Simulated assay, not measured.
Amino acid sequence: MSHHGQPPRFAPTIQEIETLALGALARLPETFRDHLSDVVLFVEEFADPAILKEMEIGDPYGLTGLYTGRPVGHEPQTGDTPPTVHLYRRPLLDEWVETGVPLDALITHVVVHEIGHHFGLSDLDMHVLEDMVAS
């Protein structure tokens, strides 16, 4: 175990990031969790090049997370893929190192923002929500 406030000596693994992200999802208020029971979490090294191209992001380090899925309030269609949160490990680590924000706080921030898009939240709403789920 690393001492509190000391960065770990090793870069967090995909599994560790997944654990932190699932923790953040679990701390969301119940009204949100009710809609997210079927959400699928993926942690990958980087976003798919096709996604980056589609979003017009030139740098693979430019995307830390992505939410895909039908926004809440839209009737699900047959054959819909479940809502998915993608987190990208390398860009997250880059941001973590650059900002010095604790990793769990950074992961929570990204997860809340991706989920927030799903719920159509404003930036202010997301900020409030993030404070609620801060570990």
Rank of each mutant, 00 (worst) to 15 (best):
T31L: 10
P91Y: 13
D104C: 07
A24H: 07
G73K: 13
T13E: 12
D125R: 12
G58I: 05
D59R: 06
D38R: 14
H4V: 10
V110Y: 00
V39P: 02
M126T: 02
L87V: 04
T99C: 04
V39G: 03
R33K: 10
V39K: 05
L103S: 09
E95P: 00
G62L: 08
A11W: 00
P82E: 00
F42L: 02
T68I: 14
H109A: 04
L20Q: 14
P102C: 11
E45M: 11
T78A: 15
L66A: 11
R33S: 00
Y61C: 07
E44S: 08
P7L: 01
T108R: 15
I57E: 04
E45T: 15
D125G: 06
E75Q: 14
L106S: 04
A21P: 10
L93F: 06
P7G: 04
G116V: 05
M55V: 01
P12S: 07
D94W: 10
P83C: 04
I51Y: 12
H4T: 12
R33W: 02
L129P: 10
P82L: 01
T31P: 00
A105Y: 15
H113P: 06
V72S: 08
L20V: 07
A26F: 03
V97Y: 13
H35A: 10
E16I: 04
S135V: 13
D94R: 14
P12A: 09
T99N: 13
G116Y: 09
V111C: 08
H4F: 08
I14E: 07
P7S: 06
T13R: 09
D104E: 15
T68P: 03
S2E: 11
A50C: 00
V128H: 09
L93D: 03
D59T: 00
G79Y: 07
V133M: 01
A26Y: 02
L63G: 07
D34G: 10
R70H: 11
H35K: 12
T84K: 12
L106C: 04
L106E: 02
L93C: 06
P7R: 15
V128L: 11
T78C: 09
D38N: 12
F119V: 04
R70D: 00
L41Y: 06
A11Q: 00
E56T: 04
L25Y: 02
L20T: 01
E54L: 12
L87I: 11
P82C: 10
M132A: 13
L87D: 00
E130K: 01
H4W: 14
E130P: 00
V39H: 06
R33H: 08
R9S: 09
T19Y: 04
T81C: 05
P29V: 07
Y67R: 13
V111P: 03
T78P: 15
F119I: 07
I107E: 07
A50G: 06
R27T: 02
G58Y: 02
P82A: 02
A105L: 14
L52H: 10
L41I: 10
L93H: 10
H35Y: 02
I17N: 01
L129M: 04
R90A: 15
R9A: 10
L66G: 09
H86I: 06
E75D: 08
E56I: 09
M126Y: 00
